[in-house]
Amino acid sequence: MGIVMTDDKPVIVFENVSFSYGGPPVLEEVNLTIGSREFACIVGPNGGGKTTLIKLILGLIKPDTGTVRLFGSKPAGVRSRVGYMPQHVHLDPKFPVSVMDVVLMGRLGNGRAFGPYRGEDKLAARKALREVGLFDKRNQPFAELSGGQQRRLFIARAIACEPELLILDEPTANLDPKVEQELYQVLNELNKRMAVVLVSHDMTFVSQFVERVICVKRGVHIHPTSEIRDGTLSEVFGTGVKMVRHDRHEHE
């Protein structure tokens, strides 16, 4: 479909992109445009190519055919303008590090090869912590945060570099619905000044906030959230998937 939702320049453009890891194609003939104030959600079955799509956006892998443009350029050169929150299943929950130190990691790579953080880095980190409501916790150990606080901390780390695009990989996995809702409110607020793209397996809450759902299963199918009905996603996912009930005007 490839609708451009905003008038200004798109942040992400895919043109006829195909990719495989040497075997069968993971993504085939993908066309996709994401605008600079868009809030989009990528859904799809496991192994359907969601993470591959993100790696292509970030320029960590190159497409076999077709082109990927990030802010109108090749992704690898402009990757530092993207705020990224990876899946954190691999993290050590007891790692000895303070909340402030974690946020400051988001300031790495801004032309600095070594040495301590500068004053501007600390200012940006403090600002990011205020935005996610963790400023009071800045001197606490990472290990003492709750699950929801950890996710907010990782959002703060992702936005500490003052990005134009925020990408989040499964930001709400294993959170209870109330905390999940709070997290989307934070993202909604951030969406006022940057594009937000998130990967999710569960659309119950997302659908209240996102404008478009990008379904990835080898190909990419784009649906404005208003179009989503029971059945649309089952075409993509196949059977046995938690169905999305999207009743647009009935917020609880």
């Binding site: 990224y84 990876p86 691999h90 590090v97 130190d101 990691m105 790495l108």
Partner: peptide, 14 residues
Amino acid sequence: QAVCFDEEFARIRG
């Protein structure tokens, strides 16, 4: 510190 804590994020930050 960043590489020890979260390799994947550090890589994205360059």
